[in-house]
Design a protein around this nucleic acid. Structure first.
Lengths: 180, 180
DNA sequence: GAATTAACGTACCATGTGGTGATTTAACTG
DNA sequence: CAGTTAAATCACCACATGGTACGTTAATTC
């Protein structure tokens, strides 16, 4: 019922969604208050789902490069969220979102870059991530490139080769052959 | 009068624009037919303006790395189009654009990647662009990274460090210090 | 200056949006 | 089975959007 929200892209109107979901508008309003609450709940739910996947990867026993590769795979070619990353879609249209949703978007972006930073710190400590790139810059770079890949997929482009090339700068020279 | 369109972001409605431009709606329709024709004309005009700048850079007497640096500067920190790149904004919301405008968006993207390809070919011929990255991939990569920088600026982020790091993969190790 | 033509703008239309009050249906309690 | 309460819905509102018919003004021509 309310998981049907995952397929609801940003372009669908509240008016049309509750129609194709078989639920009437006042019910939605009783449950979420207003559209801002609705998008907020949808994004929060989506965040929990995708966060679970990412945390599973980060907590795994993989090697550093393997974790990066898995995250890149998730962003570039995993068919699970084939309708596109809801976070990226909402960030793209964030000025059309309500206040609460905008705050959530910013918070999720911050969490993502923090997660990348932790991964990079771990990689540096174990010596698996060589080079002299600051962790902060690396995390921002990873976040930007993953977001770019998701954006490209939302446009119908194939992000794989570009993402593979972009990740080379982190010193993972095998990333290109691994992904492409 | 019709150059006021450059400041017109995608979020402004036709209804509100002709009001703040002091022109009545029927006049707009007499001139452009429908909203699709309007956005098309606006994007075409913007394309001519920005294309002039890019061509000026490409046709200059600069060294290869200098041209790349100038283009990166144009994308990352030039205040000329401080309201954001209209092409990127329209590409972001391309499914809300009319048919003609969507075709123009695709055509302009193709022209951009062709221009990058020519630049890279020139760089390789003169030996200024080392490495074994195929020209086609390099052009797609440049296009993606420039687009990412413009997207980040549209979101209010500072794209400079990420773009500088991304351009390192092209073998321009000095790009980071030049831009940041 | 009169007549014709071209451009312009007011006022309007149909439609879709987010949001809500009144009413009916359903469930639960005694 | 009767009576109260909770929940879902029908129908509606105000508003904004893209788009247009028609009256009005301005320019042109003789």
């Amino acid at each position: 019922m309310r998981s049907y929200w995952n397929e609801g892209p940003t372009e669908v109107s509240l008016n049309g969604l509750c129609q194709r979901a078989g639920v009437s508008k006042p019910s939605v309003y009783r449950e979420f208050g207003n559209e801002d609450g609705l998008t907020h709940a949808a994004l929060e739910n989506y965040g929990h789902c995708v966060l679970a996947k990412v945390l599973e990867i980060l907590a795994g026993e993989d090697i550093f490069a393997g974790k990066i590769r898995k995250i890149a795979y998730l962003a570039a070619e995993d068919g699970a969220h084939e309708s596109g990353c809801l976070f990226v879609k909402m960030r793209t249209a964030k000025n059309q979102m309500g206040e609460k949703t905008q705050i959530l978007i910013a918070a999720m972006a911050s969490m993502a870059v923090d997660a990348y930073a932790n991964l990079l710190i771990e990689g540096r400590e174990t010596g698996e991530w060589p080079g002299n790139i600051p962790v902060k810059l690396g995390a921002a770079y990873l976040h930007a490139q993953i977001g770019l890949a998701l954006d490209q997929r939302a446009r119908g482009e194939d992000p794989r080769v570009v993402l593979a090339l972009a990740l080379c700068v982190l010193g993972l020279t095998d990333a290109q052959s691994e992904i492409a």
